[in-house]
Simulated assay, not measured.
Amino acid sequence: MPEYLKPDICIIGAGAGGLAAAKTACGLGASVVLVESGSIGGDINLGSVPAHALIAAGYRAHLIRTSGEFGIADSEPKVNFRGIQSYVQSVVKAVSRHEGTEQLASRDIEVIAATGKFVDKRTLQAGETLIRARRFIIATGSAPAVPDIAGLADIDYFTTDTIFENFRKLTHLVIVGGGPAGIEMAQAYCRLGCAVSLVDKGEVLGRHDRELVEITLRRLREEGVDIREQSVVSQIEARSQGIGVRIKNGAGEEDVLDASHVLIATGRQANIGDLELGTARVATVGGKSGRLRLNKFGRTSNFRIYAIGSAAGGHAQLPEIEHQATISVRRALLGFAANREPDGVAIGL
């Protein structure tokens, strides 16, 4: 017979948002069940923490290279990529060491190591356990969205999750995608002495203020990043040595970049496809693996179920994700009437 749990709140996903939600609910005196099939920490281990550690290493190299204007002899830094990888992992370990199962248990947060799926509109199954909670919060995070590019499957490419496993100098890194993640990695690797080209099918940082974007692009170009806007990658060519990246711009002109490595940074998609949301009467936009339809409080079409972070279809950084978690938990358990977004715009609509 399956085990039945009836907590005040069940949180699906133990990334930054899920952990923040669990701790907030625990602080309110609620009984909490946290469901996670992977490692505790999730996007903390793969997302902004290693990214900012890498950016910090690049900034140190940049300071060495540009100290001449201060009367300090500048020089080309000697970069040890294995050392940088060790530094990045040490930062991740330091941040995540207080987020393990034992630490959560000390707060009376019950952790179930299993994949969760809804079996009806108010019950989640996780392994052999059925969870009939008052409220649920989906905090399953997201995965890199990989575009359909001819030849991409024939090479070993990086994504915005796997790039932090690299421990070698990249002779020429071609980044596909000009969002915040792509820009961060372009500047970091350029500052660490790698040749970097960035290709975007539209305008780089297209959702941001254009005046500020122009300042950013000017600085990146000054530092040596080759930026190709209004250009699409039409084909990836695996070679005996290196990779050919064939691009076409808006005028129809073609060019081939000789790359050593390719990073796909074309956005992310929510990890909601395995939750059986239709069974829970949760509406989505764009099919089973699309995005959730949420109101301004982050609540789904099922009044018992909320969503936060990138599982909600947003592009939030850690502080904003943690804010969403706090507001959503208070709303779910206490009816706390506050929008999660400062401007009141509904997330995911």
Rank of each mutant, 00 (worst) to 15 (best):
P2D: 13
L5T: 06
K6L: 05
K6P: 00
I12Q: 05
G13S: 10
A14E: 10
G27R: 08
L28C: 12
A30P: 02
V32L: 03
V32E: 03
V32S: 04
G38T: 01
S39M: 06
G42P: 04
G47M: 04
G47T: 02
G47L: 01
S48H: 00
H52S: 04
H52D: 02
L54F: 01
I55D: 03
A56I: 00
A57L: 00
A61E: 02
A73N: 05
A73K: 14
A73C: 06
S75M: 04
E76T: 11
N80S: 13
S86Y: 00
V91I: 14
A94E: 12
H98A: 07
T101W: 01
Q103F: 02
Q103W: 03
D108Y: 06
E110R: 13
A113T: 08
G116F: 09
V119S: 07
D120Q: 02
K121F: 10
T123F: 10
T123Q: 09
L124T: 13
A126L: 13
R132P: 02
I138G: 15
A139V: 04
P144H: 03
A145T: 09
L152V: 11
D154Y: 12
F164G: 02
L170C: 11
H172F: 10
G182I: 08
G202Q: 07
V204C: 12
L205D: 09
G206V: 05
R207E: 07
R210P: 14
E211S: 13
L212S: 14
E214W: 04
T216V: 15
T216Q: 11
T216M: 11
L217R: 13
R219P: 01
R219D: 12
R221H: 08
V225P: 08
I227A: 05
E229K: 07
Q230F: 10
S231Q: 11
V233H: 06
I236V: 15
A238Q: 13
S240Q: 15
G242C: 12
V245N: 08
I247H: 04
G250D: 08
G252H: 06
G252I: 05
L257M: 15
A259P: 08
S260E: 14
H261N: 14
V262Y: 05
I264S: 11
I272R: 09
D274T: 15
G278K: 13
V282S: 09
V285A: 14
K288P: 07
G290Y: 11
L294G: 12
N295T: 05
K296I: 12
F297N: 05
R299T: 12
R299H: 06
R299E: 14
R304D: 12
R304Q: 13
R304E: 13
I305R: 12
I305P: 11
I305C: 12
S310G: 06
A311V: 05
P319L: 07
P319K: 12
E320C: 04
H323E: 15
S328N: 09
V329S: 10
R331I: 06
A338L: 11
I347M: 12
